[in-house]
Amino acid sequence: MSGAGTGAELRLVTPGEAIETSSGVRAGTGTISYGDAIIATKVGWVNNNNGVISVDPINSAYMPRSGDLVIGVIESVRNNLWFADVNGPFNGLLPMSLAPWKVEFGAAREQMDIGDVMLARVQEVDEAHNIVLTMKGVGLRRLKEGFMLEVSMTHISRIRGDNDSTLNMLKDATDCRIIVGDNGRLWIDGDSEGLSVMKKIIDFVRNEGHKENFKATLVEFIEDARRNL
């Protein structure tokens, strides 16, 4: 969300709209070159980063990339692997070799069963968009408690804020644990009061996350929410 909140006038474009025709600029994400012009391919805000023109899309599907932290839901289990829904077009595959446990052949469901929620990383994505997941790494695990929420892809960076500043503010305000997945999913856990405040805050992000003065209004909202506890 660079560009937002900097005070510079933001420009909203739609697919097909010519953004720039001057030479010396390059087409970044959300754009293509067409003749001399750079054309927007998505609805979003124009961003010029040292001559690279891109469009920050307002709406976007999750497309997994290697290294992403994702919150997945187990969709099927085989003898020696799991398939998880990661909010993208294709299920991610977790092979036994990248799971944190050693299990007997055929006993995979004892560790993770259909409907279980897990925190994983994307190990690799090939050209045909096959996704391999790993659960070997610090903190990667099955999420046994807490709650999973989905927000739009563009709100993910808004919830984190610069250097996780917004995220830390949320944690302090609610005394909840929160994990932000790169795949548009959040995991939260805490006591009943904290959770209900956190859910109100996430709803606020869903409705207001696009706005220029988002962070300022969020601070206000959190104070109000705590006062009304």
């Binding site: 839901v73 969709e75 259909i114 409907g115 999420l143 408690e145 709650f147 999973m148 009943s192």
Partner: peptide
């Protein structure tokens, strides 16, 4: 549709608190 177990758990917890 896939039903996340955390959703069922959360609905149960909320019901117990009449929420």
């Amino acid at each position: 549709e896939l039903v996340p177990k955390l959703l069922q758990q959360e609905l149960k917890r909320l019901a117990e608190n009449d929420q």
